[in-house]
Design a protein around this nucleic acid. Structure first.
Lengths: 329, 329
DNA sequence: CTGTTAGCGCGTTCAA
DNA sequence: TTGAACGCGCTAACAG
């Protein structure tokens, strides 16, 4: 392995000079800079990022904590977008990333996780889809030992930034559009899991809509499960005139139920996942750009690491109609 | 940050002694070992893996090269399984992993990629779904600068191990089962992309089956695209009595075409992805365990790094029937 | 503008 | 059985 020392010898300069050239310090004559660069080329030298990190004490890695335990591929798509967005931005910002699936830290105490993260030189953490019930991670966030960015969880403190779309407003918007398009009055709302922060936000949006438009609403908990949503729809859809679901996956379950019951009701979802197209029906949904959200999350965690204040970041969303033909490729 | 030095002071021993305790060296008295461990607990000391790596020169990371550019979620599921399998095993083996999506190295030359990998201290690489047309990665493999494990590509050399199921036999088996179950004779085979290694292997399996059972077969290239498969089925399925597809996604396309044509033909796929269930029809498919394959790939790359020989590793598969009700959750 | 020196945190001889 | 000393590859003062 060719090191900085050999480059220095080859170029006939001191090690520190090479280092300065490498890191773009100003006070280097063009001549020496050229000689050093020539030597680098010649020896095919590649700086050792490990040593560099150690020396500069700047080894701050960012951990991504993903929870893809729900084995539905609809979720996989979301997590892949999260990953892609994060890794691209990390490369751009030249920070190292440690991908952690929640199964890898399941059962660990807060101390153990702290130790694990510190042993990996992690200084910032992005948590995707934090559960309300996850007391361990919550405690980690409160301790403020790391910089945190939580996606879709309304937690903000000195060292914690919250990022995500405005779930309340988005749910309001998509449901309103669906309701108005079809002049509906009786809503069946299939909500998410109790332990998800977004669940109550979206529900709040629905409550506001019901009030604003003077509608009636029946709420049932679908747990973000396609099967649960399907069963709820089978049971309650008959005498409602629209079904609003807190996720695309549940919307698909509901729609399949309607097909089985051989009745038509407008349905709307939330997320904008591709799978939506596969049911062969058109429906409104909230589209979030998971890639951008994740990309921005990395920027935010970097800001925190560099001394920034935790804050709330709201990302844009749109209401779209998805249909098989638009998606197939 | 509490370092080994402070632990040493606290325990009243030398730095090197602490290091020896940490790394389980034999010649340490129980008494000092206890004192050191007590100090570690007390100070909540966590070894710095960066420094440790630098010092021991053992920093061999493993890069994962994934190509999720096909934006179909069916593929996302596969890649998530690959990732999970790899990360779990990497944690178990205590090796660091660098996740690389092919978009991040697109357009780079072989030299640039080598440099990129080396700057990240990568010594081993796992490539998922290498394309025949990817001359850059092929060259990297030939140069043998890193240890390679290629998933689903039949490349073996000194430092390259090939891993995957026996695609030829698997394709043979699943098609045979489907054909025999329904006493079919005229096959429409929708194959994969020309640039995929598995494409020709699976086709070979089909040719053998046709010969063995004295069948007739029409082959059309579906490019692993749902839409292409759909169009092929629309055009050719009518006067065939079974459709065999080289992927689940294409099987779904074909099945949707059949529904539209309002005719029934048995269809079989390949992969065992969850999406299969969503078309609401039962069909045979080859199920591969992507998690296990990836997990094993990490083991294999570790073997290569530690001086092992490249070789061919064949993973098991099974033929299963998938149906909506079995999958929904 | 360039070189000397002193570490970063840790592993590893080699004496003692 | 232990510890002093050196070095991994590099960065960052400080001198010159």
């Amino acid at each position: 392995m060719v090191s900085i020392k050999e480059v220095a010898k080859q170029a006939g300069v001191a090690i520190s000079t090479v280092s300065k050239v490498l890191n773009g310090y100003p006070n280097i004559s063009r001549e020496t800079r050229d000689r050093v660069n020539a030597a680098i080329k010649e020896l095919n030298y590649i700086p050792n990022s490990i040593a560099s990190a150690l020396s500069s004490k700047q080894f701050g890695r960012i951990a991504l904590i993903l929870d893809p335990k729900r084995q539905t591929q609809a979720i996989d798509q979301i997590f892949m977008q999260y990953l892609l967005g994060a890794l691209d931005k990390a490369k751009e910002l030249k920070v190292e990333v440690e991908t952690i699936f929640s199964s890898m830290i399941a059962g660990m105490s807060a101390e153990e996780i702290t130790g694990y993260l510190r042993s990996k030189s992690v200084v910032g953490v992005v948590i995707y889809g934090l559960s309300k019930e996850d007391k361990v991670l919550q405690r980690l966030i409160n301790e403020q030992q790391f910089a945190f960015v939580v996606v879709d969880a309304p937690i903000v403190n000195e060292r914690t930034t919250s990022i995500g779309v405005d779930h309340e407003q988005a749910q309001y918007d998509v449901a309103k559009k669906t309701v108005l398009d079809d002049k509906c009055r009786k809503i069946l709302y299939i909500s998410g899991r109790r332990d998800g922060y977004v669940t109550e936000q979206r529900l709040k949006g629905m409550r506001r809509l019901v009030e604003d438009l003077d509608l009636t609403m029946t709420v049932r908990r679908g747990e973000f499960s396609e099967l649960a949503a399907r069963n709820i729809a089978l049971k309650y859809a008959e005498n409602k005139d629209v079904i609003v679901c807190a996720s695309d996956l549940m919307a698909i379950g509901a729609m399949n139920a309607l097909i089985e019951m051989d009745i038509f009701r407008p349905v709307c979802g939330f997320d904008g996942i591709t799978l939506m197209g596969y049911v062969g029906k058109q429906m409104n949904t909230v589209r979030q750009d998971f890639y951008s959200i994740s990309s921005r999350a990395i920027e935010e965690v970097k800001l925190l690491i560099d001394g920034g204040q935790g804050r709330k970041v709201t990302m844009p969303y749109s209401i779209v109609k998805m249909y098989y033909k638009d998606i197939i490729c």
